[in-house]
């Protein structure tokens, strides 16, 4: 369960995130919506631990947010912007490398990597290098890197970015499968399709402001 209590972020006298209080039960999907600059990415950053709240507290499964803590890293997967992509690895290599570092059994890691690549329709692009991918393919590759691992909580910032409707649908299916497997998903999004078809609840940050 994720508990956010009165979290606010300000910088230089500007409010980046107005006070937010919410609870997300395990296995639920929360869509965060709002205009540009309303604080969606900032809230995700606070949940992922890359941003320290000015006020308020966040607890994930009863523990504080601490991105350098091994248990926290294991529980929480996040994509806020594209993850770093190794320029000298192909799509298949990199997804497999990520999976290999999370799973002890190499066969299990290979299977997970294959599944994620197939789910995101990257199979035909497995031997491409990152600089050979289109903008939308790069977004799917970023999602594959973040999904090629076990997690309890998944934080995504606009996963639909640069994707056509068909691929947005694929992403919805992939996230639904993770939710069905017990993961909690929190996604900031501008996509009504993604919010309406996936989310159990929607947090409107404009309303919070």
């Amino acid at each position: 369960m994720i508990e956010v209590d009165g979290v606010t972020v300000t910088a230089g006298g500007t409010t980046l995130l107005p006070a937010v209080t919410l609870t997300v039960p395990r296995g639920a999907v929360l869509a965060i919506r709002g205009r540009n600059g309303s604080g969606k990415s900032t809230l995700l950053g606070v949940l992922a631990g890359s941003r320290t709240p000015t006020r308020g507290t966040v607890r994930i499964d009863g523990a504080d947010v601490s991105p350098r803590d091994r248990g926290f890293r294991r529980r929480v997967a996040a994509m806020i912007g594209l993850p770093p992509m190794a320029p000298d690895l192909t799509v298949s290599d990199h997804v497999l490398l990520v999976a290999t570092t999370w799973l002890d059994d190499p066969r299990e890691a290979a299977e997970l990597a294959r599944t994620v690549i197939a789910e995101l329709h990257l199979t035909g692009l497995g031997q491409r290098f990152p600089h050979e991918l289109s903008s939308g393919q790069t977004q799917l590759f970023g999602l594959a890197l973040v999904l090629a691992r076990p997690f309890d909580v998944l934080l995504l910032d606009e996963p639909e970015q640069r994707l056509d409707p068909e691929h947005v649908e694929s992403v919805i299916q992939v996230l639904r499968a993770r939710r069905d497997a017990g993961a909690t998903v929190i996604a900031a999004t501008h996509s009504p399709a993604l919010a309406d078809r996936l989310a159990d609840r929607t947090l409107w940050l404009d309303a919070a402001a």
């Binding site: 890359s50 350098r68 890293r73 770093p84």
Partner: peptide
């Protein structure tokens, strides 16, 4: 660059 961002790999 991984160390400067969110955790990507299953090692520190």
């Amino acid at each position: 660059s991984v160390a400067a961002g969110l955790p990507l790999y299953g090692i520190g």
